[in-house]
């Protein structure tokens, strides 16, 4: 059984004047101990997707419809206590920016203990404290006692991100959501942090959704990858296949445009901009930027087709003669 399954999820944000149609029917699944990558440009809705899973969207955000199945139970319909329990013991999330993910006026100890208190009920205060120290040690921070007594601003960016990871581990019983965990860090420590996350996930037998712009990292760390464009999953494939032979035009462009050290010229980037979520283009949301776009792309939204046993793509180029698949290619 899948650990997590998101089915046909629609999310919109509402401001005073406009409605932003951000997630446009997302379907995704994570099996136990599986590491899943999520790639796409900034603003594709990756963070929104992670927040929707935990239902921690800002007040403007609304889940319009869809299902978020956690071990078979729909979290969107489950009672609040169940959702709280999943947040406390099931899913942990690493936030993008370690600078803002910690409260500036409380000690690390206070914040970590507050998290542990709910994730490990029935533990005594001293047991929680030794748990906290253990967690700090597990993210390879020296001198846990001193770290716990520090305020966030007394730690470096890398140290803070390790603390955030420790916090996420505290409530990640089964699944870790890593939202660009290294984007805001120094290049030199990005690699360390990613290795650390990878090791911890394997050691603890967790599943992970890794959101990252660094495609190399995703290629190394994950089993399966989803490409997201403007609130749609446009392609899904096992990691090696996706990188060796991308099918969707957007994935192709994304992979072609990774800047390489060996190449002297900079990648051109993908022409055009992500669409305006207030008025998303009809048909395929990618058609205004797609080099292969034909008439049908402007009118009909491509549905997901299963192109092989373990691959799925949403593009009219591949849809001829294939059946529409609802949900996942591997879902039984």
């Amino acid at each position: 059984m899948n650990l997590l399954e998101v089915r046909d999820l629609y999310v919109k944000y509402r401001s005073y004047w406009y409605t932003y149609h951000v997630l446009d029917g997302i379907t995704l699944r994570v099996s136990p101990r599986e590491k899943v990558g999520l790639i796409g440009e900034s603003g594709a809705g990756k963070t929104t997707l992670l927040k929707s899973i935990l239902q921690i969207l800002p007040p403007q955000g609304r889940i319009v419809r869809g299902e978020v199945l956690w071990k078979g139970v729909d979290l969107l319909k489950a009672d609040k206590g169940y959702v709280m329990n999943v947040r406390r013991k099931g899913i942990g999330m690493i936030f993008q920016d370690p600078l803002s993910a910690l409260n500036p006026v409380f000690k690390i100890k206070d914040q970590l203990l507050e998290v542990l208190r709910y994730s490990y009920d029935g533990y005594s205060k001293s047991e929680l404290l030794s748990l906290a120290e253990e967690l700090i040690r597990s993210v390879l921070l020296p001198d846990p006692a001193r770290v716990l007594e520090s305020y966030p601003f007394q730690l470096s960016g890398g140290m803070r991100q390790r603390v955030v990871i420790a916090m996420a581990l505290a409530s990640a019983g089964d699944l870790l959501l890593a939202d660009e965990p290294t984007t805001n860090l120094d290049v030199t420590i990005q690699d360390q942090i990613l290795r650390l996350i990878d090791r911890l996930v394997i050691e603890r037998g967790l599943s992970m959704i890794l959101v990252s712009h660094a495609l190399g990292v995703v290629a190394k760390m994950t089993h399966r990858v989803y490409t997201m464009y403007a609130g749609n999953i446009v392609e899904e494939a096992p990691t090696p296949k996706l990188f060796n032979e991308p099918l969707h035009p957007y994935t192709k462009l994304l992979i072609e445009n990774v800047p390489r050290i060996s190449s002297r010229r900079l990648g051109e980037g993908i022409k055009g901009n992500p669409p305006d979520y207030r008025y998303p283009p009809p048909g395929c949301r990618f058609h205004p930027r797609c080099p292969y776009a034909v008439d049908i792309c402007k009118k009909v939204k491509p549905f997901c087709v299963k192109v092989s046993r373990d691959r799925r793509v949403a593009c009219h180029m591949y849809s001829e003669g294939l059946e529409k698949v609802d949900g996942d290619v591997n879902a039984n």
């Binding site: 709280m84 329990n85 910690l102 914040q111 507050e114 998290v115 709910y118």
Partner: peptide, 15 residues
Amino acid sequence: IGRDYVLNMKSHGIP
């Protein structure tokens, strides 16, 4: 309230 640290705490199921 809109800051990440509030979301972070929420994501851990703190009341």
